[in-house]
Simulated assay, not measured.
Amino acid sequence: MTESGNQPTLTAPGLNTTEKRDDDIMRRFVRRMRTVEWQRGRWYDPWEATMTASENVSCPAQVTKTPTVLAVDDEPEFLEFIVEALEENGISVICADSVEKAVRYLHARSDISLVITDLAMPERDGCQLLEYKQQNLRFADIPCLVCSGHSSHDWLGEVLGLGAVDYIVKPVSIETLLTRVRRAIERTTVSLLLVEPDRPVAALMERTFSHPRFHVFSARTGKAALDLFRQQQTSAVIAAHTLPDMSGLSLLDKIKEVDPGVPVLILVRKDANISRQQLIASGADEVISLPLCNLETVNQVLTLVRARQPRQKVPAPVRR
């Protein structure tokens, strides 16, 4: 990230056991902020107390289909509002009261579906978080919703230029927040059709795409895949090169007849008697080779889906 004033460049911090946190501890942290009180001649800091009490608690690398939102704001009351509004509606929330802590969570967690951030915060602001996220391929596809007290069009232009998908002006109602959060998550959900007859390979692929960003539906034959493709809105298709009733390339041709723009990736085994160049020349958008490199495979799909999506017009900031 570029420097802002005299502030140092934001870099990916190392993680230690103190800084790794599970969701239960974070929820308790937000609720405990209600009890901030004067103790021992200074303000009692629930965040500091939680850090000390949870020194040996590690952040689990959980992968769940429940959407997980990272909320970033230096106002405890607003973090509490987000937790109560979203978790009562089935959306998990991780809280960070600074950009530094938000960056740590981005590195520590693999299940974040959306970032909600304020703009004006001490030390580093929301624009710096957006810039950091945009410059790191691992996080660039995580959508970000800005929720701030600033209503200036100058701010709006800057945050949209840094990749924010939406902008809400505080104060905001529960209904508006929930609607915008769901819209942002749904807008970036990838519906993936997986066509693989081999059960262990299919299970491996499903685990690879088990992030809540992906909605995976599977078929084991070409005919079943075509039926699903016609019924389901599909962002991309991964098809095995060899299927019981047709070849993967035959399935590719049939899918392209229905929707010429949908990306189709062909899955091949290491000993396959066909090259990547031949598959691309036959119409495949990309080739995935076994054994998998999980991050590379996910990035291949996201890159193709992102290239297909038109640039969406972001609604103007609203006040509720």
Rank of each mutant, 00 (worst) to 15 (best):
G5E: 11
P8S: 11
T9G: 03
L10S: 04
N16L: 10
N16A: 07
E19G: 03
E19R: 08
D22E: 12
D22L: 07
D23W: 08
I25Y: 04
M26D: 12
R27I: 05
R27T: 09
V30L: 07
V30K: 08
M33P: 00
V36E: 11
V36G: 08
W43H: 04
W43P: 00
D45Y: 02
W47V: 08
E48P: 01
A49F: 10
M51Y: 09
M51S: 06
A53Q: 09
A53D: 15
E55Q: 15
N56H: 14
V57W: 01
S58T: 15
C59F: 01
P60V: 14
E77S: 14
V83T: 09
G90M: 07
G90L: 07
I91E: 00
V93F: 07
I94L: 15
C95E: 04
C95A: 15
C95D: 01
S98W: 05
V103S: 03
V103F: 06
Y105Q: 14
H107R: 09
L114W: 01
L114P: 01
A120T: 13
M121G: 12
C127N: 10
L130R: 05
E131L: 13
Y132K: 00
K133Y: 05
F139V: 08
V146G: 07
G149N: 12
G149P: 03
H150R: 13
S151I: 07
W155D: 11
W155C: 12
E158V: 12
V159F: 06
A164P: 03
K170D: 07
V172E: 02
T179N: 10
T179K: 14
R180F: 00
R182Y: 04
R183C: 07
T188W: 05
T189Y: 02
V190C: 12
L193G: 11
V195K: 06
A203K: 15
A203L: 09
M205H: 13
S210T: 04
P212G: 08
H215I: 13
V216M: 07
R220H: 10
T221E: 05
G222K: 04
Q232A: 04
V237A: 00
H241M: 13
P244E: 14
P244G: 12
L252Q: 05
P260N: 06
G261D: 13
G261P: 03
V262A: 02
L265D: 03
V268D: 01
R269L: 07
N273P: 06
Q277A: 15
Q278Y: 06
Q278N: 09
A281D: 13
G283I: 14
I288M: 09
S289Y: 13
P291C: 09
T297W: 09
V305Q: 00
R306E: 15
P310V: 09
